[in-house]
Structure formats: structure tokens, C-alpha cells
Nucleic acid binder design. Structure first.
Lengths: 277, 277
DNA sequence: TTTCTGGTTTGCGTGTCATGGAATCCTGCC
DNA sequence: GGCAGGATTCCATGACACGCAAACCAGAAA
């Protein structure tokens, strides 16, 4: 036999299967996306359980479609321009995102702070849009950046509201790194993490000061969807001391109001704590 | 004949084609992403020039892979959860600087000119990488240098594409210095600045000849990110008269092509003007 | 209700093209 | 030069994607 059926006789399900080549191809594409960078043919083949020659032809096809790209020098494969467009289309079809994108410029305008939107992606909290402001100390943040759970306000919110199973891996890695740097009583413990979670849940708004970068402070607020699911997080960032980073200061109130309004529009129960007591 | 070949006999390119089913499937996926929302089978089929039955089996396959999803009620197709992950992965892999660094050596190699990459830093356009070539009159440029807005092609591009609030301070200082040196009708006025901006925006490519240094000429092209934001500028520099510095000369074309390609890879719509009219 | 109409889904026979395996060709590396 | 380790191509084979047409399934009109 030359062709191994991916699913033996399509048992049970009566629905006739679609073009199976495309299904395997899709899985292959997803595998490539799951790797952490450009990968060699053999790596991809092994990772997806295919023979190199089979994977090779799939990869070629995906390149033809522009979904993958092949580095001319090394011959390694990576996501292509069309995949990016695809993803941007997918992201902008999420209703919460569309709505949040609309209010972001005004938020930056009114607070004078940089603001950004992040969503939970496969590698953690991912920045999908940021509005830079004229800060005296510019932040180095761009779309696509993965935010740490412990060191950013947005990360704290995801930590508190995403299911533990989702955050566990990333969290473990970050705790490990944290404890390499911080010794003694500053070590991060399970209790410390629980403390972060509960305080974030109680306040509704999260804050970090001088963690990822020493000179900036973050304020972040969650936007919930209709099932009470955390859809995205809005963050404002400013220079420490150059703005009022209090939980009840004007920027925090403004931010909380925007997030709450979005949650309400989306049918979220706006279960956040008393940001404006 | 039952199967219509998508590409007749693979003319010219000797490279053996990859799995062609996957290539057509990819195009179909891209078509769905290009539509403005969930679409019916027939719509998609028509849009991509396929028979419904063929499209149907592709769509089924794409659903199996999770790249598409089918609304249970209406049966319409839309982008699926995996496409979102794909997009987030693609976004997080974007690194304008790293990508630009990769193409810089080739640019220098092919044009024989020095080339450099600059980004908008806290003090203005900042050189982050410079490839020196064997120019008869070497340029004195190193990483970290701040480029003037008025006297360099790269600066002109930042002037035209950065928000005014960002450039205002630096610009005011430069105009002041300029008008100390240049008197009479060579003075820099608001009209002169507007003129620079509009011409740069229209051409897409900027040029300065003998401004910062008398004997060199600069050509610069912008690289835009997916939000239409200017991410970085690529400049080539040569000795005046020793190379073709025309807007439609080979170096300018080459430069514009490289910048355009980068913009596309970054999800930018490559909306730059007619660099090669 | 029946009929119609526009769309989706599924059989069916055909023959194209994806497949596994091995051969071949690179390209660093010792 | 010889030697991996990997990328690419060749080849015979039969599994499966193809076009076509029929069946099916709404909702709207009659």
C-alpha cells in the first residue's frame, strides 16, 4: 500500500469526510506555527509524524500558497506573509477586539499614556495593538510581543482569569527565572502567586510598577465576554512618577471605565471589583 | 478529463511542484479570510472560481483541521480557532529589525553602496545597523548615530510619517540651526517642510544629495508595519556622481523593492507611492 | 398543504496525483 | 578527500480528488 489512511474507515460519524489532503496539510501548518521559529524539513516531519518526502511536498505546496516561506540561505521553513494576513483577519473578526481597537486611540489621547491591547495566545498574553504616546522614556513594545505573567499588569490579569491549565507551563518557567534572580524572602512562592491572583480579582484592575522595565508603571483592566470569559486586556503604560498610578487616580478610573463599558457591550457581567469606589 | 490542472505544464520553473492540493486549499483559505465575514459555500466557490462540490470538500477538510469553522445553524463558513492561533504565532514572530538585518548585506552587495537601517528612537532617527561598502569616500556613520530630519533621506521619511507631535521638538531645533546657516531665500519655512513631506509621501522614496556630507547622496525607503505605522527606514548611501541616484535608477528600484517586500512580510499594505513610475 | 427555488450535500466512475521507499544531490565538517 | 546529515528528486502504484449529476433540504411563494 502506498497511501496510509489518516483515519481508518471514518467510523461512527456518518458525515462524509472532506478533502483529507487539505486536513493533513492544515495540521502541518499548525505544527509549524507551534514551533518557536524557522524549522528544518526533518524537524517538521518528525514533529508531525510524517516521512520527510511527504512533508516536503506539503511544505512546498504551502510555500506556493504563501502560507509558509522558505529562508533562501538555510532552506528552513517559517510562517509566510499570507499566514500573517490570515491571522490579522481572524483577530479583527473577534468582536471584542474590534470594539477595543476603536477606543484605544482615545484612551491614549485622554490619559497621555501609551496603551495596548493583549489577548491570550498560544504562547501567552500577546500584544495585538499598541498606541505609543509621547512618553519621556519610550517603551519598547510592539505588536506580537509576549507579555510575562508575573512582571506585567496585563499578565497578572491573565494569570488570575485564565484557567490554570492554560497558564501553568508559562508560569512555571517564569517562576523559575524569577527565583534565579530573586533570592531569600523575595522568592516567588505558591502563596505569592495566590496573593497576586486574589488581589487582582478583588480590585478588578492590576498594576505593576517598575518590573519589566524599571522606569515604567503599568495599569491594566480586563474585558470580559458574554460567558464571563476574559477576552482581552487593556493596559496603559507611563513613566513612574510622571503620572498618577494610584488605583483610584484619573488614569486608572478612565481605564476601568473603558474596560467596564466594553465588557457590558459584549454581554460580560462586568464582575470586576470596585475600581471607582 | 476529470481534473483540471491549475497550472498547465509548470512552464519555465524546473523546480518540481509541491503538493498542489494543499496549494489550492491554501488559496481557498485566503479567499475566506479576505471576505468580510462568514460566507456561504456558493459564495466562496464563486469567489475562488471552483465548482461548489470541489470547494465543499476543501471546506470540510479545513474544518477538520480547525482552520475554518461552520456555523451550526446557517451552515456558513468562517475562520476557525486554529487560524487565530496561527495568526498570533505569526504576529509574535514579526520582528521588523531582525528581518531587515537579514536583507541588508544583500542590498549592499547588489548595489555596491553602503546601506543602513534606522528606527525612530527617543532622540530621533537612530541608526541601528550599518553595512559599509567599498566607497571611494567612506561614510562616517556608526550604530547609535542620530540622523537629522532635514538633512538625510531617512530623516525626511520619519518627518513625513511619524506623528507631528513626535517630530516637533527635534524639527524646531534643526530648523533653528538651518536658518543660522542659510539666509535669504534658502531659509527653511513651514512651507518648505510641508513640501518635503508631501513629496516624500508621494514618491514613497526619499533622496538627499550632498546635505549632511557634501560628497554623498542618500536614497531611503520606508518599511511599514501592519497598522500602517512606519517601523524602520532603509537607506543606501553612495558617492555623488559615482552611482545612479535617480528615483528610477537601479539602486532606487532595488531599494524600493526590498522595502516593499519587507512591508508585505510585516503585514503592511505596501501602500507606498510609485517608486518606479 | 404543495410547489418552487436556491442552496448544500453526496454517489459514482475516472484517471490524476500524492505516496513510500530508495536513489541522488548537496553542504558543512572532520 | 571522505563522511555524515539532511534536502530533494525519481518512480511505480493505487488511493483519492475530480466533475457531473442526482438527491436532499431549507424557506418562500402559491
Amino acid at each position: 500500500m502506498t497511501r496510509k489512511p489518516e483515519k481508518p474507515p471514518r467510523k461512527g460519524r456518518s458525515r462524509s469526510p472532506g478533502n483529507s489532503t487539505i486536513a493533513t496539510g492544515g495540521r502541518l501548518l499548525i505544527v509549524v506555527a507551534g514551533l518557536d521559529g524557522p524549522a528544518t524539513l526533518t524537524r517538521i516531519a518528525a514533529e508531525s509524524g510524517m516521512l520527510p518526502s511527504r512533508a516536503y511536498r506539503y511544505l512546498r505546496g504551502l510555500c506556493d500558497a504563501g502560507l509558509l516561506a522558505q529562508e533562501t540561505s538555510s532552506g528552513r521553513y517559517d510562517l509566510g506573509p499570507e499566514t500573517l494576513n490570515l491571522g490579522l483577519a481572524a483577530i479583527s473578526r473577534i468582536d471584542p477586539v474590534r470594539q477595543a481597537l476603536r477606543v484605544l486611540p482615545a484612551l491614549t489621547e485622554e490619559t497621555g499614556l501609551a496603551s495596548l491591547i493583549s489577548v491570550w495566545g498560544s504562547h501567552g498574553p500577546t500584544v495585538i495593538r499598541c498606541e505609543h504616546a509621547n512618553l519621556t522614556a519610550p517603551i519598547r513594545i510592539r505588536e506580537g510581543l509576549i507579555l510575562p505573567l508575573l512582571q506585567t499588569a496585563a499578565g497578572n490579569l491573565f494569570l488570575a482569569h485564565e484557567p490554570e491549565a492554560a497558564t501553568a507551563e508559562l508560569l512555571a518557567r517564569e517562576v523559575g527565572e524569577w527565583n534565579v534572580v530573586h533570592k531569600g524572602k523575595n522568592r516567588m512562592t505558591a502563596a505569592g502567586i495566590a496573593q497576586i491572583k486574589s488581589s487582582v480579582r478583588k480590585r478588578g484592575v492590576a498594576r505593576t510598577i517598575g518590573m519589566r522595565t524599571t522606569i515604567h508603571a503599568n495599569l491594566a483592566a480586563p474585558v470580559f465576554g458574554h460567558a464571563g470569559k476574559l477576552e482581552l486586556v487593556i493596559t496603559v503604560i507611563g513613566v513612574r512618577g510622571a503620572f498618577n498610578a494610584a488605583f483610584n487616580g484619573p488614569p486608572a478610573r478612565k481605564l476601568a471605565a473603558v474596560a467596564k463599558r466594553l465588557s457590558r457591550d459584549l454581554g460580560g457581567d462586568a464582575k470586576d471589583g470596585p475600581a471607582t469606589p
